[in-house]
Write a protein that binds this DNA or RNA. Sequence first.
DNA 1: AACTTGACGAGGG
DNA 2: CCCCTCGCCAAGT
Length: 121
Amino acid sequence: MNVNDKNYRAEVYDLVKNIPRGRVMTYGQIAIILGEGYTARTVGYVMHCSEDGVPWQRVINSQGKCSTSKLSIPIDLQQAMLEQEGVVFSDKGKCDLDRFQWWREGSERDDNEQVSLFEKN
DNA sequence: AACTTGACGAGGG
DNA sequence: CCCCTCGCCAAGT
């Protein structure tokens, strides 16, 4: 199972496709939900070349900011797309995760779940 | 095979 | 809030 495996990538995309308009998820959160084999870095790697109907703009970093990139995606674009869906950013380019982070139905919002990526490795 | 570079994250100053 | 360090892991050189 690696990042180039089709199913591995599909798991990430399927989850991202379920993020509602105007809500966001973080790389680390996705990694924790998908479980073994997934880390924030690998999720980020999978996202950088997401295809088709994946709402890639709804995945941001744990600080509530859009990640800068040296790739072909202008930093302002992601934020602009999110603002268009109703996500509010501060003048410093940060959004309030307490307000906009999405947690799947049924999953009780639990900050412990988000703790420490490397603690489990 | 070593070293660097990321769409990352947590903890500390 | 900013900056740094370290842990992580895959790619590119």
